[in-house]
């Protein structure tokens, strides 16, 4: 491989995560400064099409490892292969999307390569030929500029922090097939089963998020079924409330988020939690319904481009970050907003 900038294409069952193409975009920007083109790494089984897509997004070389042992991501065969390829060809930089797979793979390969990882980076600059990366720490309360003095530098990029290039189907490049490094009996981990989550828009990729907090259960006008105990009634009320949140999300093509209070009270699964101990998100629009705006919640969504808050309490801290705020009962405002936006968006 002649390119010095590599990008790992993270995918799930052959579908690339959008952040993988954003990483290709970031790689092309680096290549402008550092020279050469971008090499995409595609590991899996039956994933040749991803190689073609990588060309469309701007890579001019693809290294494809297509092997039954690589069907599902597993750290041992993936990290072993990546370290072998990088050891042989000595790239300067390997970019990854900051997905759970990307993070783990970068870390483990870095140990083999005796190098370091710049994790969950939101901006890259080149200064005198060296890369300086910006990364939020302390849940975004601070920013650190970090660099890596060894090569290759492994860098994981936060989703939605870098622009995705426009794909161009006429583009192609050089595809090189590479071999897996481990055989099945050398791999300690076996994947037995998969229970896919119920679809919906992924929080970390979402351009719009509508979130609900403890306030979602606070609708005294609803009459829960008589056979429920107090907790059951609260959860029932909250689920009715989350239906309103869900309907607004649907009209906007948005993902549904939640505060930890809503998750801990059993209103909605943990997978929906936004915040320091949940998902860190950065959508274009974040609509917070019945969320007070605790520091740990803000940590997960403060980089949203525009925040809209609906809360009964005029002093709720969430309003300080909001572009638009409504003091009122979410159970009235949210359905009315769903209707109004639905009409304007022609839905």
């Amino acid at each position: 491989m002649t390119n010095k900038i590599w990008v790992y294409i993270d995918h799930f069952k052959g579908a690339a995560l959008p952040a993988s193409w954003e990483a290709v975009g970031a790689g092309l920007t680096l290549a402008n400064d550092l020279g050469g083109g971008v090499t995409a790494l595609v590991f899996g089984e039956g994933v040749a099409d991803l190689g073609q897509q990588a060309f469309h997004y701007g890579a001019d070389e693809v290294m494809l490892a297509d092997d039954p042992t690589l069907l599902d991501y597993r750290s041992e065969p993936y990290a072993g292969l990546l370290a072998k390829l990088a050891g042989d060809s000595a790239p300067d930089v390997i970019l990854f999307p900051t997905t759970s797979r990307g993070r783990e793979l970068a870390g483990m390969a870095a140990v083999d390569l005796k190098s370091g990882v710049l994790v969950d980076v939101t901006a890259l600059e080149v200064e005198g030929g060296a890369i300086l990366a910006t990364r939020p720490i302390y849940a975004g309360k601070l920013f650190a500029k970090v660099g890596c003095s060894a090569k290759p530098e492994l860098i994981t990029l936060r989703g939605r922090a870098f622009a995705k290039p426009e794909p161009d189907e006429t583009r192609s490049g050089t595809l090189t097939e590479v071999e897996a490094v481990l055989s099945e009996d050398e791999i300690a981990v076996k994947v037995l089963d998969y229970v896919q989550a119920d679809g919906g828009v992924s929080l970390t990729d979402a351009a719009v998020i509508v979130s609900g907090g403890r306030g979602v259960s606070n609708n005294p006008n609803l009459e829960p079924p008589g056979d429920l105990d107090e907790d059951g009634q609260e959860i029932w009320r909250a689920q009715e409330g989350f239906k309103l949140v869900g309907e607004l999300a649907k009209v906007l093509g948005a993902a549904v988020g939640a505060s930890r209070a809503a998750v801990d009270a059993g209103y909605i699964p943990y997978a929906n939690q936004v915040g320091q101990t949940g998902k860190v998100v950065g959508p274009d629009v974040y609509i917070a319904c019945g969320i007070s705006g605790a520091i740990q919640h803000l940590a997960g969504m403060r980089t949203s481009k525009m925040i809209v808050a609906i809360n009964k309490d005029p002093d709720a801290p969430i309003f300080k970050l909001a572009r638009f705020g409504v003091v009122g009962d979410l159970h009235e405002i949210v359905p009315a907003l769903t209707a109004a936006l639905g009409e304007k968006l022609g839905k």
Partner: peptide
């Protein structure tokens, strides 16, 4: 090998609510 070059507070966003 990972070196911390600088720390900063996030740029104050001027949000007019």
């Amino acid at each position: 090998v990972v070196k911390w070059a600088a720390l900063s507070s996030p740029p104050k966003k001027d949000i007019e609510t």
